[in-house]
Simulated scan of single mutants.
Amino acid sequence: MEWNAVFQLVTASLASIGVGGALVFAMASWLGKVWASRILERERTALGSELEKTKRELDVVKETTLRFQNDKILTYRAVVDVVSKVLASFDSIEQGRLCADEAASRFDEFNEQRIRVYGYLAMLAPQQVMDAQDRLMDHLLCVSQGDEPYEWSNVRNLAIDLLNEIRRDIGIDKSPIQYNGQL
């Protein structure tokens, strides 16, 4: 066999192997891309499902938090309503504009509302709010029973303390308010 024939045989063999190899490489590359796109699509779908689930869970947490915060605000408004009503009654009694029977009736109403408000607060308020409310209500009860004098500045300070604790709890503004009036 001549070198020329051997060279042609080797060249022909390499060419056929090269073409076959190129075909195998091209097919493997195409098949790899198909598999990769299928895997990627499956992962996207799974990730999309996870994201939707997480979004739904976050929406539930957000809604629950907003409802709880709204309940707190409504409860605190009820507290302010009860306190303002009883303070108006004390002012009327102090200035002689309210007869004894009507004052007793208002005190009974205040006592009922005070107990109700305490229950509402106990469900939602932190201990600092409860303590401020207790100090104010205890003082008002002592005044109504004649154990302490009715002094507007003392009542006002206790009411402002309660309002400041409420403001801290709600998170509206953590800086305390103060009375800057003349009376």
Rank of each mutant, 00 (worst) to 15 (best):
A36D: 04
A36E: 11
A36Y: 11
S37Q: 09
S37M: 07
S37V: 11
S37H: 04
S37T: 12
I39L: 02
I39F: 04
I39R: 12
L40I: 01
L40C: 01
L40F: 03
E41S: 14
E41G: 05
R42A: 13
R42C: 00
R42S: 07
R42L: 05
E43N: 13
E43P: 02
E43W: 05
R44E: 10
R44D: 03
T45R: 08
T45G: 05
A46M: 11
A46V: 12
A46C: 01
A46I: 11
A46P: 02
L47S: 06
L47V: 08
L47Y: 02
L47R: 09
L47T: 04
L47M: 10
G48T: 03
G48Y: 00
G48N: 14
S49I: 02
S49F: 06
E50R: 15
E50S: 11
E50P: 04
E50A: 14
L51V: 03
L51C: 01
L51E: 11
E52Y: 12
E52W: 09
K53N: 15
K53S: 15
K53P: 01
T54N: 13
T54L: 15
K55L: 10
K55P: 01
K55D: 07
K55R: 15
R56L: 15
R56E: 13
R56M: 14
R56T: 12
R56G: 08
R56W: 06
R56I: 12
E57C: 08
L58A: 14
D59L: 14
D59P: 00
V60Q: 06
V60A: 05
V60E: 08
V60L: 08
V61D: 05
K62D: 11
K62L: 12
K62E: 14
K62H: 14
K62C: 05
K62I: 08
K62S: 12
E63R: 07
E63T: 12
E63C: 04
E63A: 10
T64A: 09
T64C: 02
T65M: 10
T65H: 12
T65K: 13
L66G: 01
L66H: 12
L66E: 13
R67Y: 06
R67P: 00
R67M: 06
F68V: 07
F68W: 10
F68I: 11
F68A: 07
F68T: 11
Q69W: 09
Q69L: 11
Q69D: 03
Q69P: 00
Q69E: 07
Q69N: 04
N70Q: 12
N70S: 15
N70W: 08
N70C: 02
N70R: 14
D71F: 02
D71C: 00
K72C: 06
K72D: 02
K72A: 03
I73M: 12
I73L: 14
I73T: 10
I73F: 06
I73K: 09
I73Q: 08
L74S: 13
L74R: 08
L74W: 02
L74A: 12
T75Y: 00
T75W: 00
T75N: 03
T75R: 01
Y76R: 05
R77L: 09
R77M: 08
